[in-house]
Design a protein around this nucleic acid. Structure first.
Length: 1014
RNA sequence: GGUCGAUUAGCUCAGUGGUAGAGCACUGCAUUGACAUUGCAGGGGUCACUAGUUCGAACCUAGUAUCGACCACCA
């Protein structure tokens, strides 16, 4: 006999170990079987399990266990990602915390990388053990790490091949630069956030004091403003970049500036004697309706300007160093500015290298942080009177469209106060024109610092070329997104894809397989020896310092893990994979890259057939789980349980910002006053599956987890029930030879359930699959089958009892099987403890898809029994018959079939409906409470127990309800158009329903009238 | 600005044209008999709004309102 209750902590890890030791997770490599592969989204080596992982991996495990039971050759490919920036960050932080004055740079590259490996061996990969706690049936013996030597071989080959085809190239481009990590990052790693910012308006004086007539017109061409100007007005959110301006651009159609196009204007900052003059040019980019219509062009620090500068051959002067400080290198400003001047006047040629060497930061700004420089520039320009001035707004006229008070400061910070306003008239105070406005600012997703566009030499992948076949593959349906509307997101991005910057100025990652000689030539090769051969003897080679974007190696995951470029059995069997399971936030980062690189290197074959995009897990109020909210739920806490105090302590100490901790403590105590019980992995998995609809978000509620833990308990105790009545586990049941309707019915229902689960999983409707199993097990099997079997099991020994004993345990075993993908631990434990087994449950065959077992006769018969019992119970409850009281019941007007059924099921009806007697009668006895089942009327002879008036009222209520339905149906059936146009089976069905309702109505109303007449 | 999505019971959500559902919560009854992590019975919904298509609309179409996500953005 099994224990009274299931204790997850006593079995989960024990069972997992048994599976692992028996090699249950290994692919069968049976060539006759269909291969089925899922590539795990490799978690970061620094990662620990969060709810998103729990959902992601539960889904994958359900698919894998299901397909394994269906006999497929399954490989769930596990592994980890080296996560360049994240890992380097962790180890650097640890170095800093360890107190020594060592940092990455003082250690040197090799020592630091060794340190990271050391960290990885000790602390990395806790997430894989957490996945085991969840029950993940990964093929652990084939675990890969993206930095494994064999993976490196694949990475190098891909790089070299793409390079040789011209699909990887090195170029000086404007890239997103992270000043904190001092590396380039791809545009995907940039988060644009709206912050409070300012827009300053400055005057760029025309060279030589020239003037022109500035005219503004309204939509009808009427002149609204006309004045002589000796400047052009410019708006900017980044004044510090003015130092690198190469031109001012206006739209070619902008008549306001037509008189001055081609002339030079002065950048109003820097030493007066060396003011740089830059040309006023035309370009399609400026929007005449925005701001003044004139845009300063700083090619080296803005992506739009970069394009304009390229088109107009405008020099792009880089102003900052890799930390985001104003450059302090090179010659004095005076000397450089002179050269720049000759270039602007077209008197001197320039090239990239020459421009790059020029530091146009005036001496006083050199070495300043970019935000400090901004403040200084604003103050200096304003002091000199080159800020555009506007009247100070009156207090009451604070229209948001109007200029706001002057402020100088860095974005996001409050104003520093007025800076040098110069009143022009006595009456109206004039102030510098500075708009307070929300601006979108780029931040590094890891560092959180403001990203700086920087002109640097980087390696790029020609993504546009690789994207074409990847788009076609989805268009042609060779890879399908589920839910399918995600393909729009995919197309949208792939069709507008930009060159992918793959080089990173980090140390942790795959070195770029390129070597340079002293002459600046480079050689791309698989190994240094090959590069040396290309360069020739005697050349001193040094390898490119940079490493590759982490996603470059992740993009190869579907084939690099299978041994590519070797033609391994694994590669043959498991490429392409069946389904990629992931959340939407990684479609661009990973899915798109795997599609591009997979198709490129695997002869046009897509890496996976389906991409299942699952929801994001939020808290029960729909809020994103975040540490500062105190609403994060650690999956392992739900599995193992955690006391409230421990939970609070965990959250408080785990915080990055200690000053916020009390808030978190309060939030946590309020939300989870009792901590979490130990619900076990199965309950968590089942919850996630049941909530995994094709929607976008899952709001996880702990109550729900408790509910599904109860479901496990229910199954456990049902098994206990079977053992108590000596059910025979491991029995062979041939469903077609069963005698009892009860047994034929439950077998029929079981298979219905199995098939519903199969179809739902195949269709990625995990919630439907979980619901179907839940409903069958609880509401059909436990609530009815077990109850109905009791009279037989408790009765005399005989054929009936033997049959029930066999079917009871046999059905339970099939339930273990069908629930196994969802709740592997409890089902395997039950399997193990109910008989001496030769195999694991997880190795059993999947039940179902056996059409022959539907048994309509048995189903109809049992439905009738259930209906009789339910209705009697309902009536009893309605008229407040004491639960313990046994009542006499008569059937009136029962036909032959019903009479037969009454005899067959008399015992069980009497027991479950708590009847004293069950008999036939030709006529309804006076009084009594009546209900209708099919053609027969059931009379509960309890006239003395009830109040006639109340009973009449009860019947009236029912009659009203039925009458309403009858009216509706009659109206519909009376509609000729309905009868003519609706499908025949619908019409028949509704006619039948109307007839049934009418019969019920007649009988009930007769009963009501009789009662009322008393 | 572009794209996608949401709006159904007190709460969280299923439901792709034919009788509105689940879990939790709620109400009443039941406790030696597999299970109180339980059982039985029950209450509770103008399916956001408007118009259309249809014999028939929670579901399809168009629009409106509110909320959200992603992408791109004007210096």
């Amino acid at each position: 006999m099994i224990d009274q209750r299931f204790d997850p902590s006593a079995h989960e890890q024990r069972i997992y170990k048994r599976w692992e030791e028996a090699g249950c997770f290994r692919p069968s490599m049976d060539t006759a079987a269909e291969a089925y592969a899922i590539m795990i989204p490799p978690p970061n080596v620094t990662g620990s399990l969060h709810m998103g992982h729990a959902l992601n991996n539960t889904i994958q495990d359900i698919l894998c266990r299901f397909e394994r039971m269906r006999g497929k050759n399954v490989r769930w490919q596990p592994g980890m990602d080296h996560a360049g920036i994240a890992t380097q960050m962790v180890v650097e932080r640890q170095l800093a915390a360890s107190g020594g004055n060592q940092d990455r740079r003082s250690m040197g590259r090799d020592a630091f990388v060794d340190k990271v490996w050391e960290w990885k061996e000790e602390s990395g990969g806790t997430i894989l053990n957490q996945l085991k706690r969840l029950g993940a049936s990964c093929d652990w013996e084939n675990t890969k790490f993206t930095l494994d030597p064999e993976m490196n071989v694949a990475v190098n080959k891909v790089f070299v091949d793409l390079y040789n085809e011209g699909l990887i190239y090195r170029a000086k481009r404007l890239v997103n630069w992270d000043p904190h990590f001092q590396t380039a990052i791809s545009n995907l790693e940039v988060e644009n956030k709206e912050v409070d910012g300012h827009m300053w308006h400055f005057k760029y004086p025309l060279a030589g004091g020239e003037t022109y007539t500035y005219v503004e017109r309204d939509a009808d061409g009427n002149v609204t403003l006309e004045e002589e100007r000796d400047y052009i007005s410019i708006a900017t959110t980044r004044p510090e970049t003015m130092l690198g301006d190469g031109a001012v651009a206006v739209h070619p159609s902008d008549e306001r500036y037509a008189p001055i196009v081609g002339k030079l204007c002065e950048i109003p900052v820097g030493p007066k004697e060396h003011r740089r003059l830059i040309p006023i040019i035309t370009d399609e980019y400026p929007d005449p309706n925005f701001g003044s219509g004139a845009v300063k062009i700083t090619g080296a620090h803005d992506f739009n300007d970069y394009q304009v500068a390229k088109r107009g051959n405008i020099p792009m002067y880089a102003l900052m160093d890799e930390k985001g400080f104003m450059r302090a290198d090179g010659e004095d400003y005076a000397a450089v500015a002179e050269v720049a001047q000759r270039i602007a006047e077209g008197k001197e040629d320039f090239d990239e290298a020459k421009i790059a060497a020029m530091n146009l930061v005036p001496d006083p700004y050199r070495g300043l942080d970019r935000f400090e420089a901004r403040k200084a520039v604003v103050v200096d320009i304003t002091a000199e009177g080159n800020a555009v001035m506007v009247p100070k707004p009156q207090k009451e006229a604070a229209s948001p469209a109007k200029p706001a008070p002057a402020q100088a400061g860095e974005p996001g910070s409050p104003a520093d106060g007025d800076s040098g306003s110069s009143p022009e008239t006595a009456d109206i105070e004039m102030i510098p024109y500075v708009e307070n406005k929300k601006i979108m600012q780029p931040f590094g997703d890891r560092s959180g610092v403001v990203i700086e566009p920087m002109l640097t030499d980087q390696w790029f992948v020609d993504a546009q070329t690789l994207a074409k076949p990847a788009i076609a593959a989805v268009r042609e349906g060779r890879t399908k997104f589920v839910p399918e509307n995600w393909d729009r997101t995919y197309y949208n991005w792939m069709e507008n894809i930009e060159p992918w910057c793959i080089s990173r100025q980090l140390w942790w990652g795959h070195r770029i397989p390129v070597w340079y000689d002293d002459a600046g030539n480079h050689y791309c090769a698989l190994t240094e020896a090959e590069a040396q051969a290309m360069a020739g003897e005697g050349s001193e080679l040094s390898q490119d310092e940079d490493v590759l974007d982490t996603w470059f190696s992740s993009g190869l995951w579907p084939f690099s893990t299978q041994g590519w470029p070797e033609e391994t059995d694994g590669l043959k069997a498991f490429y392409p994979g069946a389904t990629l399971v992931t959340a939407f936030d990684i479609i661009f980062f990973w899915v798109a890259r795997m599609m591009m690189l997979g198709i490129k290197f695997m002869d046009g074959e897509v890496p996976f057939k389906d991409v299942y995009i699952h929801a994001i897990v939020r808290d029960e109020d729909g809020k994103k789980m975040s540490k500062s909210e105190g609403n994060v739920i650690d999956p392992v806490d739900l599995i193992d349980g955690i006391e409230a105090d421990a939970l609070v302590a965990k959250r408080t100490t785990g915080l990055r910002q200690p000053e916020k901790a009390p808030q978190v403590e309060k939030a946590t105590r309020k939300r989870y006053p009792n901590g979490f019980e130990a619900y076990g992995a199965d309950a968590l998995r089942f919850t996630l599956a049941a909530m995994a609809t094709k929607g976008r978000d899952i709001n996880l509620s702990v109550d729900r987890v408790a509910g599904y833990r109860n479901f496990g308990s229910k199954l456990w105790s049902a098994t206990r029930f079977a053992q108590m009545y000596e059910a025979k586990f491991e029995s062979r049941v041939n469903p077609s030879t069963l005698r009892l309707a009860l047994n034929r019915w439950i077998v029929s229902e079981l298979y219905k359930c199995c098939d519903a689960v199969s179809v739902a999983i195949e269709d990625y409707r995990f919630n439907d699959a979980a619901d179907a199993a839940y409903q069958f097990v609880w509401s059909v099997f436990c609530d009815w089958y077990l109850e109905l079997s009791k009279p037989i099991l408790q009765g005399v020994d005989g054929e009936d009892k033997a049959e029930v004993r066999h079917v009871l345990s046999w059905t339970l075993e099939r339930i273990f099987e069908v629930l196994h993908p969802f709740m592997p631990f409890i089902t395997e434990t039950l399997w193990e403890q109910t008989a001496a087994r030769e195999t694991f449950l997880m190795q059993q065959s999947w039940p179902g898809l056996s059409d022959g077992f539907a048994d309509p006769d048995a189903t109809a018969e049992m439905d009738w029994v259930l209906s009789v019992i339910s209705q009697i119970r309902s009536v009893r409850s309605d008229v407040n018959v004491p639960a313990g009281a046994k009542v006499p019941v008569r059937f009136i007007g029962a036909n032959e079939i019903t009479t037969q059924r009454i005899e067959t099921h008399r015992d069980v009806i009497m027991r479950l409906a708590r009847l004293e007697t069950l008999a036939h009668a030709d006529q309804a006895p006076a009084g009594g409470v009546k209900t209708i089942v099919g053609e027969a009327t059931l009379v509960l002879e309890i006239a003395d127990l009830i109040d006639a008036g109340e009973e009449v009222a009860r019947l009236d209520k029912q009659l009203g309800k039925i009458g309403g339905e009858i009216t509706g149906l009659e109206k519909r059936l009376g509609n000729e158009a309905f009868v003519a146009k609706a499908p025949a089976d619908i019409v028949t069905e509704q006619r039948q329903r109307l007839a049934d309702l009418k019969g019920t109505h007649d009988k009930l109303s007769l009963a009501r009238d009789q009662l009322a007449a008393l």
